[in-house]
Computed example of a mutant assay.
Amino acid sequence: MHTRPLGAGGPQVPPLALGCAGMSDHTGPADEADAIATIHAALDAGVTLLDTADFYGMGHNEDLIRRALRAGDREKALLSVKFGGLRGPDGSFVGIEGRPAHVKNALAYSLRRLDTDHVDIYRPARLAPDTPIEDTIGAVAELVQAGYVRHVGLSEVGPETIRRAHAVHPICDVQIEYSLFSRAPEANGILATCHELGIGVTAYGVLAHGLLTGGYRQPAGGDPRAHWLPRFHPDHLATNLALVERLRPLADARGISVAQLATAWVLARSRAHGTVVAVLGARRPHRVAEALAAADVALTDADLRAIDEAVPAGAVAGTRYAAPLMALLDSEPGPKSPAGAPN
């Protein structure tokens, strides 16, 4: 796959990355053989950027990636690791940590689980409520100087925090939820700030946690995710699925799926906003192949206008997360809270 730099000084990356969270967490562990085969399929296809976190499955995801990396794979894989999500023994999220001592301690455990001497991108999962971002990024910068980290990233932070962090050490990318259903990064100035500073964007949730696949069907008895993802709540679901159906004729006209159209839309944002990489939440190898096809879809300006008319910004019903989780987001305004589940 063709590559481009992730930010002005970042690594060379393809337009797609593999998000590994679903292999260990969120909706329950994936079949391990399928998960490992998916990582192999991604790497073999040139999807080299693997996104994980030390709190995904409370270390399980990093262990899984270590087992999946074959001889020679570590040299071509780019490992992006998030830290700072604190979990209790029951799996609940109990806070966000960003103190320098925690940063270094967390990396020590990640290096051991991943069986590597460095990670390629290291980033706080959320802005810690009681630690200045300068202190957190300063600690990561020391790890860069020591050779344990190659590049510094951020996740779910707003323009002011991006600028403050970038002043401490160059930031290669900001990870943010961005899709046809989540367009706050446009309105909040995050994309514009990243473009101005030469910072890339890694967009997760490009299929809106499954709503934009075009094949979502509500489980009998309701979707258990509705309590923390309001867009799946019965009060909002019909509206959101109707928006998805407005995309179907556009996808059919191109001979692609709704999921491929939604992914291609995210990738097309690079024209206006610099490097935008789409993070895939695949758990099975065939999903990687489907996403690869989306990377070959060249949407015209007329296509983009038609998509925006079908799903205008702000048309989706419901917030991204329930209120306690929204309170964790420096990337969107609102009251803040110290506890909840980061991506």
Rank of each mutant, 00 (worst) to 15 (best):
D252S: 11
P15M: 05
A42I: 12
D120S: 12
A42S: 12
A106P: 12
L329E: 13
E196C: 00
L267I: 04
G222L: 06
K76H: 11
A293Y: 00
M23V: 05
H233L: 04
F181Q: 05
G318I: 11
T193A: 01
H40C: 06
A146M: 09
V201F: 02
P100D: 07
A37C: 08
V103H: 02
R225T: 13
T275G: 02
V47T: 13
I65D: 13
Y109I: 05
H2M: 11
E196S: 00
L16G: 04
P129W: 03
P14R: 02
R269V: 00
L241Q: 15
A125R: 08
C172I: 03
N188P: 01
A293H: 05
I307Q: 03
D330S: 04
L211T: 02
T161A: 14
H118R: 15
L86M: 15
D235L: 09
T136N: 11
A125C: 11
G19S: 13
L261P: 15
E160N: 14
H227K: 11
D54A: 09
Q175H: 12
K82N: 08
V140R: 09
L328D: 12
A68F: 12
E134T: 13
D330I: 01
D31S: 05
R225K: 11
A310S: 03
L6F: 05
F83H: 10
V144H: 05
I121M: 14
I176A: 01
E134Q: 12
E177P: 15
T239Y: 02
S110G: 06
A184E: 14
D73F: 13
L237H: 05
L197P: 04
A77K: 10
A139H: 11
M1Y: 06
V13I: 13
